Simulated scan of single mutants.
Amino acid sequence: MIRVIPNYKRIYNDMITRKHPEKQEQCRSILGKEDLSMLDVIKLNDIIFGIKDKQTVIFNQMHRSYDENTILEILSYQHKNNMNNTQLANHFSLSRNTVAKWKKHFVNRHSHSLKA
């Protein structure tokens, strides 16, 4: 099964150019990256569209998915910033159970990359 990954860089460049040119400067550093992580996509979305009402935030959060690299990036962020699971969950709008599950699944397999 081939998994097709959207070209988020192109999508967001087009969206900013056509609909939100005033946001171009704020998004420049993220869009300048060679590859965008899911965290980058989330940051771009927040910059362009801002925070919505609580119901929209809850709906969007329920439909987010994270690839392995993004999960490792989030867990690395926790390590670098000396955060506990609750602090990390609040920072990224995740559940504590999700963070605990990720740590159980990924930390032992990738402990060397989380300390970088």
Rank of each mutant, 00 (worst) to 15 (best):
D40T: 08
N45F: 01
I51N: 15
K103Y: 01
I42H: 01
E73D: 10
F49L: 13
Q61Y: 01
R64N: 11
N82F: 10
K43H: 08
M15A: 08
N85C: 10
K54G: 02
M38H: 05
F59Y: 13
K115C: 08
Q26G: 04
K23R: 09
A89L: 12
I5G: 00
L31R: 02
Y77D: 13
I74T: 05
H112F: 08
Q87T: 08
L88A: 03
I74R: 00
I16D: 03
V41K: 05
V99H: 06
E34V: 07
N69D: 15
S111F: 14
T86M: 03
M1R: 03
Q78F: 01
G50W: 02
A100D: 10
R96N: 15
V4Q: 00
S93C: 08
N81F: 09
R64V: 05
K33I: 07
C27P: 03
K115Q: 12
S76N: 07
N84G: 14
K23V: 01
N45E: 13
K19C: 04
C27N: 04
N85S: 12
D35P: 00
R109E: 13
R28G: 01
L72F: 03
V41P: 02
A116V: 15
M1V: 05
H105M: 11
T17K: 11
L36M: 06
E22G: 08
H79K: 13
I74Q: 01
A100N: 11
D53K: 12
L36F: 06
K9P: 04
F92L: 13
Y66E: 02
K101M: 05
R96S: 12
I42L: 08
N85R: 14
H63D: 02
A89Q: 11
K52P: 01
Q78L: 03
T98N: 05
G32C: 06
N69Q: 14
F59A: 08
W102D: 04
N60D: 15
Y8V: 05
L114M: 09
V99F: 08
Q87F: 00
